[in-house]
Nucleic acid binder design. Structure first.
Length: 271
DNA sequence: CTTTGCACCTGTTGGC
DNA sequence: TGCCAACAGGTGCAAA
């Protein structure tokens, strides 16, 4: 479920509920996530104060004095703040109990998510060290994208989803940004002109920013005992609309498969 | 080194 | 209604 905007929304929802709180208990109900949840987490975290929260790509980083808890929501995960009395649901794998009686609860049916620990600077963790620039940061722009795509024959959609080129662009927003930039997903990356790279980098940024803004508007419901934590349904230009009329020109939206992922485009609006 | 496809899971959907 | 295959928004890693 979570693409970068959902992770960012989760971060913003969690931060005020977590920062400054002391961990009272840690419950690992299902240690078999993408990687084993470190069994020493309770000993490491009990009594520790949550200092700061960060996001790097789609990783959520919860910083303590002695290290960083690294969380990933995978394909189906979510994190919610619930009261201590909230009954457990199936796939509630991990709880962080706080000193004010609330709990941060990880729910992840498919278990592609992760709960890891790293001592010291989180940026040095093997999973984070090789990541490319943040799409919303200053280091990603048309020039970056232009340089990164030279001599690449791979489809542009695969390239913008490559975490070494730019992080956090998942399947939905890759499709949407390419539509908005007027670029077909299967176009060999190396064939993109510099102006088209500039346009695409801008649309990646704009698409993600707009989705975060949408998510932010539902944040007031974030800390609740039931219901979905502010996941937002928005209208897509092409994603999931194979065979339907293009919202811009009416042409039938096409579906193709790139790197085993469904890819959508309008043959009239994208070239 | 780069590029490709698999693997990890459960839940939902659509065709027969 | 039941059954089964296909697919799902992520992404690291082994294999080529």
């Amino acid at each position: 479920m979570p693409e970068l905007p959902e992770v960012e929304t989760t971060l913003r929802g969690l931060a005020p509920a977590l920062i400054g709180k002391t961990v009272r208990e840690v419950h690992i109900r299902q240690p078999k996530l993408r990687w084993p949840v470190p069994p020493e987490l309770p000993a490491l975290l009990n009594g520790q104060i949550i200092r700061r929260l960060h996001r790097r790509a789609k990783y959520l980083l919860i910083e303590f004095d002695r290290g960083t808890l690294i969380l990933h929501l995978g394909m189906s995960g979510n994190l919610r703040i619930v009261s201590a009395a909230t009954p457990l649901k199936k796939h509630d794998h991990f709880d962080l109990l706080l000193d004010n009686g609330t709990t941060m609860r990880l729910h992840d049916p498919r278990r592609f998510g992760a709960v890891l620990w790293h001592t010291g600077d989180a940026a040095t963790h093997p999973l984070l060290a090789a990541l490319g620039p943040e799409p919303l940061g200053d280091e990603f722009d048309g020039t970056t994208l232009y340089r990164a795509t030279r001599n690449k024959t791979a489809a542009i959609k695969l390239v913008i989803m490559d975490q070494r080129i730019v992080v956090g662009v998942g399947n939905i927003y890759a499709n949407e940004a390419l539509f908005r930039a007027g670029i077909r997903p299967q176009l060999p990356a190396g064939k993109l002109s510099r102006p088209r790279c500039t346009a695409l980098a801008g649309e990646i940024r704009a698409t993600l920013t707009a989705a975060i803004a949408k998510g932010g508007s539902t944040l007031r419901d974030y800390v609740s005992s039931d219901g979905s934590p502010g996941y937002f349904q928005q209208e897509y230009w092409v994603y999931g609309r194979a065979g339907e009329a293009c919202r811009r020109c009416g042409e039938s939206v096409r579906l193709l498969r790139l790197g085993q992922r469904a890819s959508f485009y309008c043959p009239h609006c994208q070239h």
